[in-house]
Computed example of a mutant assay.
Amino acid sequence: MLSPVTDPDGAPFWQYAARGELRVQACAECGEPRFPPRPCCPHCQSFAGEWRPLSGHGRIWSYVVPHPPLLPDYAAQAPYNVVLVELTDAPRIRLVGNLVRGADAPLNSVDADRLRIGAKVQAVFSRSGLPQWVLERP
């Protein structure tokens, strides 16, 4: 499994995720959420930031189902899905992850024919702190 590459701006995202919390950086001046995390607000250019909790609800905005050949560590799980989720609390933010049956389920635990753009999903977190997604109505 791939591990996140952290930097000073993005490290808090992964620290919260390791605790099972979905938080995004927001500007402390204008309130605009931003992802990926960065030192300066692209809207008002303020350097003031804070980490806001989100509900973890969203909808599938797009998806892809990779098939082999893939990186060797992922070939055994293929085909699996990769979803792009638009967050309900912050619709300008979209997070990448996998649609799974539950936290720590294999990447291929949901059949590709169950994927639908617009399907409502909820964030879950693997033991490693990786955000994943489950259908709100399986």
Rank of each mutant, 00 (worst) to 15 (best):
D113G: 14
V110W: 00
E86S: 08
D73A: 13
L135W: 00
L2E: 12
G118K: 07
F47H: 09
H57R: 14
V134R: 09
I60Y: 06
E29R: 15
A103W: 08
V83C: 08
R101M: 10
G31Q: 13
A119M: 13
A105Y: 05
V65H: 01
S3K: 12
V82H: 04
G20Q: 00
R19P: 00
F35C: 04
P37V: 06
P53S: 13
R137W: 05
G20L: 02
R59I: 05
S109Q: 11
W51T: 07
R52G: 00
P37K: 03
W14H: 02
H43Q: 14
W133R: 08
L95S: 03
Q15T: 07
A11T: 15
Y16I: 01
D73M: 14
E136Q: 12
A18F: 03
V85D: 02
D113I: 07
G56K: 07
A90S: 06
P106G: 05
R92G: 15
V83H: 08
P39D: 04
E29L: 10
P37N: 02
A11V: 05
S3M: 03
V100C: 05
V83P: 06
A26D: 07
F13Q: 08
P91E: 00
I60G: 07
R101G: 12
A78C: 03
L84E: 06
E86G: 02
H57P: 00
P4G: 03
Y63M: 04
A26P: 04
D113A: 15
R59G: 15
A76W: 00
C40P: 00
V134L: 05
D89I: 13
Y80T: 06
V124F: 03
A18D: 00
R116T: 08
R19A: 13
D89H: 11
G56N: 11
G58K: 09
Y74S: 11
D111G: 12
V64I: 11
L99I: 09
G118D: 09
G97P: 09
N108Y: 01
G56V: 09
Y63D: 00
V100L: 01
S46N: 01
H43T: 06
S109Y: 10
A11R: 14
A105D: 13
T6S: 11
E29C: 12
V24S: 03
S3L: 10
P72C: 10
Y80G: 10
R127S: 03
P91T: 08
P72K: 13
S46A: 13
R52Q: 11
I93N: 01
A75T: 15
G56D: 07
P8T: 14
P131Y: 14
D73F: 15
P72G: 13
R94W: 04
V100T: 09
P8L: 11
I117D: 02
F13S: 04
L115P: 05
R101T: 15
L71N: 05
S128A: 15
S55E: 12
P79I: 03
A78N: 12
P4E: 07
I60D: 04
R34T: 12
G102Q: 15
A105I: 06
P138N: 06
G97V: 04
R114A: 15
N81H: 01
E136N: 02
R127A: 14
Q132M: 11
N98Q: 06
P12S: 08
A112Q: 11
F125P: 00
Y63W: 10
P68A: 09
V64D: 00
P131M: 12
